[in-house]
Amino acid sequence: MTSIKQELRHASKATREDVFGKVITYCCVAVIAVLVISILYFIASRGIATFTVNHVSLWSFISQTSWNPGLLDAHGQPQIGALAMMVTSFTVTILAAIIATPFALAVALYMTEIAPNRGARILQPVIELLVGIPSVVYGFIGLTVVVPYIRHLFGGTGMGILAGTLVLFVMILPTVTTLSVDALNALPGYLRDASLALGATRWQTIHKVLLRAATPRLLTAVIFGMARAFGEALAVQMVIGNAVLMPHGLVTPTATLTSQLTTQIGNTVMGTLPNNALWSLALVLLVMSLIFNLLIRFIGKRGQLS
């Protein structure tokens, strides 16, 4: 009697291990949560300082195109207009997504529908290789191959949105492809059977059933690619031209939010207006990536409902 009672009241070794594991897990989660919150707080406090401490108007920040944080203009106001960089960032992102999507879809369909065995066996390593190439290599290829070619075709320096778009297109292609493959593989096989059994050809099945059913997850794939393109700094910085000017076409030198950050952050002193202005750019990047994330979640939820 007593021995069973004692045993029942005594925590077993497995229970103690369970508690131990739980404690470790919670500690790790807490550390990461603190890290994320600190980063958010740091960027936000620095980024907002431009407007609260240095009294730059938020409106001129998002609507002006002259960027020269170290100098004052004729009215004694610092020249902090980020519009040109925002326009360029969005343009390269959207163009890269528009170019990459059809290629990514074609490759994904080839790997899942047209030649699932052979296609996946050959293309999977290729895509993984593309992911593994460092962005500086992409930028270097862009600088030595793409930029001279554009210069030859259109004149000028060759640097600008077009060069940035082409480099980003190759960089986000594997991301969009991999996620599209996942989206198509997640479709239940019975959709395919149902469509074929109604007399649909393979192509009709792909574009009328599979692509339509996978649309929410395919959109998520494209937005993931856009988030990556929006945040990419190094490769873009090497081919964009790094002149903070409103782009007048696809081949004029300009700058993105990220390229301006990477080129200038080493040239400013912490706590000064030029430094704070750069943090404001970082804040814009952070807010945008948050919006991309929310979009992905929103679309994912809608996809589950249907």
């Binding site: 239940p188 019975y190 959709l191 059977d193 149902a194 469509s195 074929l196 059994a197 109604l198 007399g199 059933v209 339509r212 059913a213 249907s306």
Partner: peptide, 16 residues
């Protein structure tokens, strides 16, 4: 396949 239609074990409507 239009002349000979098939109904499967699991109901398989399209998500439309």
């Amino acid at each position: 396949r239009q002349k000979i239609g098939m109904v499967f074990q699991q109901p398989n409507p399209f998500p439309f």
